[in-house]
């Protein structure tokens, strides 16, 4: 299936969870925030959140700023 990850198309296995996505991207799950279709998905809900075709996922983190 294809999701939209940070505005770019991203191919994934069917029935993958948000947690699987972070794991595949080798991201530290504690340092990022996940949004699914503009709704924040809390850290403890990532495993039970199964992604669907065309879902829009944003993965956001801190960076340098003033």
């Amino acid at each position: 299936m294809d999701i939209v990850l940070n505005s770019k198309p991203h191919n994934m296995k069917e029935k993958s969870s948000l947690y699987d996505l972070l794991k595949n991207l080798k991201l530290n799950p504690d340092n990022v925030v996940t949004e699914l279709n503009l709704q924040i998905i809390k850290k403890d809900k990532r495993e039970s959140t199964i992604l669907k075709n065309s879902d829009r996922v944003e993965i956001i983190t801190f960076m340098g700023g003033g």
Partner: peptide, 18 residues
Amino acid sequence: ITIALRRVNLENPQDNIL
């Protein structure tokens, strides 16, 4: 200290300011 929020850089996901 101040920090900003942006999309994760998927090219270099390990590099986190924290």
